[in-house]
């Protein structure tokens, strides 16, 4: 008897919570809404651009673009736990490309990682990779890069009040935090070879480690650090970006047709303002000012 009552109480409480959750979702419009507007206006390729027998035709007949990407990169490609939608700059670019090829933004994101994306492209598990994929000459031997479609740079954050760190070389001999599998690791090794690098899997873990003095500085992409410093006054950014990381769209090695097709698409969306709007909806929500000048397509060795 008593047991039944308890179960009833718990059930009612849970229902109440569930109802609350739904109400909250309806009341707060997510950023995904604006994301859809951009996609609505994004261009679609002419039928003549989809060459017979090409990768583009294969994607179109499949009706879905397979994108290698992240689900945990804030502002770039992060799954919204409330809606299940993947949001951010890279994620929206993927949707825009899908719309260009298929006519609809039908995307399946394959959660890839820095250690798997070359293999995923090579064996055809994914068609493209949008994942802060910095174009390098080493990588260009394994995959083809369209773009660059965005340029970012690494900068240094410290705990508020830390002195003696103003440039990358100051990191020599110190413990430096970096995200696992990020370009920060090779960059620190190059500019401050005597630094001891400690890595953590995600951005929040790195920030927590910085606050707990596991290292004196945290090297990460400028965008992420700006967002972190805005949320948390204990974090301070000490330099302008000291690297130039051109992000490319990873494609299967040797697929020149597809590379030219994607480059043409990039040129179009940069000219008609789609690129700028995608930037505004994602990175632009933490970085002040207008969208930057997009990097010149093919301007980087390896692209």
């Amino acid at each position: 008897m008593c047991m039944k009552k308890m179960i009833a109480v718990v059930a009612v409480a849970l229902l109440g919570l569930a109802a609350c959750g739904e109400a909250d979702n309806a009341a707060v419009p997510g950023p995904s809404k604006t994301g859809k507007d951009v996609i609505g206006k994004a261009p679609v390729a002419a039928a003549s651009d989809i060459l017979p027998g090409s990768t583009m035709e294969k994607i179109k007949s499949r009706g879905e673009l397979l994108v290698g990407g992240s689900l945990d990169a804030p502002l770039l490609s992060q799954q919204n736990p409330a809606t299940g939608e993947v949001e951010g700059f890279d994620a929206t670019m993927g949707k825009a490309l899908a719309k260009y090829i298929i006519g609809e933004p039908k995307v399946k994101i394959v959660n890839s990682a820095s250690e798997t994306r070359e293999a995923l492209l090579a064996n055809g598990t994914v068609d493209v990779v949008f994942q802060t994929y910095t174009i390098t000459e080493e990588r260009a031997k394994q995959v083809a890069f369209a773009g660059p479609y965005y340029t970012s740079g690494l900068t240094i954050a410290v705990k508020q009040g830390t002195s003696g760190i103003a440039k990358p070389e100051d990191l020599n001999g110190k413990k430096v935090i970096a995200g696992a599998n990020t370009p920060a690791i090779p960059a620190i090794k190059k500019l401050a070879p005597q630094a001891e690098i400690v890595t953590f899997g995600s951005d929040p873990e790195c920030l927590q480690a910085l606050k707990q003095d596991r290292g004196v500085a945290y090297v990460q992409d400028e965008t992420l650090l700006i967002a972190a410093a805005q949320k948390d006054p204990a974090i301070q950014i000490v330099t302008k970006p000291f690297t130039v990381d051109p992000y490319g769209i990873g494609l299967k090695h040797g697929d020149e047709q597809m590379k030219k097709f994607v480059n043409d698409w990039l040129g179009k969306i940069q000219a008609d303002g789609t690129w700028q709007q995608i930037w505004k909806d994602s990175i632009g929500t933490v970085v002040q000012g207008d969208a930057p000048q997009p990097p010149k397509i093919g301007s980087v060795p390896g692209s």
């Binding site: 820095s114 250690e115 070359e118 080493e138 990588r139 031997k141 995959v143 696992a180 690791i185 090779p186």
Partner: peptide, 11 residues
């Protein structure tokens, strides 16, 4: 191994 792959891209 992950760190090496980050530079070499040969998983």
């Amino acid at each position: 191994a992950k760190n090496v792959n980050l530079v070499e891209a040969q998983p």
